[in-house]
């Protein structure tokens, strides 16, 4: 797997956010009460890359992505989308981004079709384009037959897919997807991967968070490992994993692996 734009992230000085990267995060930090959720995260998502953000539960992935997309105000640090500061020029930055947040509700009393239309109209797109793209997205995500069903009655995987459609409607330059494959069935997941791959080939950039290492290793060209609110390693997949698989490398970095000695009673024979 080679990255279409193999610009190493260390090109820019660590203090100066990159102007060319699709997403450039510098020193983002957030504290909730006594708990430091994100502790100075630096990330470079090169333009045209398929970037995986991996980390154990509670590592600060969602918090980082929320701050990078303008949903959560950071205590420190900056986030730039194609050179536009998310917190200084939010409207301009948000036009460039498509966001699939994790763990938020949707306006689920709308039908699937209405929800995607709503997302398009909120972006100020015209009615014809919205209608055309909504139809295309529903078809691509295999939701056409449920377009008129209320989102509240959707299954978890369908809900994820309709949220993804809402994030894609305005053809953003950068896609920020938090756990896009959670509870999505294998066929739909493969379809989504195809959509994302061709999106990247056509010049778009994607950052996905996930804890499925195998998926990230196959799908992404760049990866960052994050734990306890800090970046442990970042770069191309091959740089980060070296000789090992990404999963082994991840466990090395994050630690906390128990040996299989325990639970001796949990044996059926």
């Amino acid at each position: 797997m080679s990255s279409p734009v193999p610009s190493p992230p260390e090109q820019d000085s660590p203090q100066q956010p990159s102007r060319t990267a699709a997403l450039s995060i510098r020193g983002l930090a957030k504290r909730f009460g006594d708990k430091i959720a994100v502790n100075g995260v630096d990330l470079e998502v090169p333009a045209g890359s398929f970037f995986g953000l991996v980390g154990p539960n509670g590592a600060g992935k969602t918090t980082t992505l929320s701050m990078a997309t303008g949903l959560l105000r950071p205590d420190h640090g900056r986030a730039l989308v194609h050179g536009v500061d998310v917190w200084e020029k939010p409207l301009e930055a948000k036009r460039l981004m498509g966001v699939l947040p994790d763990g938020v509700r949707l306006f689920d009393r709308l039908t699937g079709e209405q929800l995607v239309t709503y997302a398009g109209l909120l972006r100020g797109m015209d009615r014809e384009t919205v209608a055309e793209r909504t139809g295309d997205l529903l078809r691509a995500l295999d939701l056409t037959n449920d377009a008129g069903t209320l989102v509240v009655d959707y299954s978890a995987g369908m809900t994820k897919k309709i949220a993804l459609a809402s994030a894609l409607i305005h053809a953003p330059k950068l896609l920020v997807l938090d756990e896009p494959f959670e509870s999505v069935d294998p066929v739909s997941a493969a379809n989504i991967r195809d959509i994302l791959s061709s999106y990247v080939h056509s010049g778009g950039s994607v950052i996905v968070s996930s804890h499925v290492m195998d998926l990230v290793q196959r799908m992404c060209d760049h990866v960052a490992v994050i734990a306890a609110g800090t970046v442990l390693a970042a770069g191309t997949i091959d740089e980060v994993r070296g000789e090992a698989t990404l999963e082994d490398r991840f466990v090395d970095l994050v630690g906390g692996r128990n040996t299989a000695e325990g639970l001796s009673w949990l044996r059926t024979s």
């Binding site: 039908t111 079709e113 209405q114 056409t144 037959n145 377009a147 008129g148 069903t149």
Partner: peptide
């Protein structure tokens, strides 16, 4: 859940 095809945007 009853499947319903789209086409009706209602107030939109």
């Amino acid at each position: 859940m009853t499947k319903k095809a789209g086409g009706n945007l209602g107030w939109f």
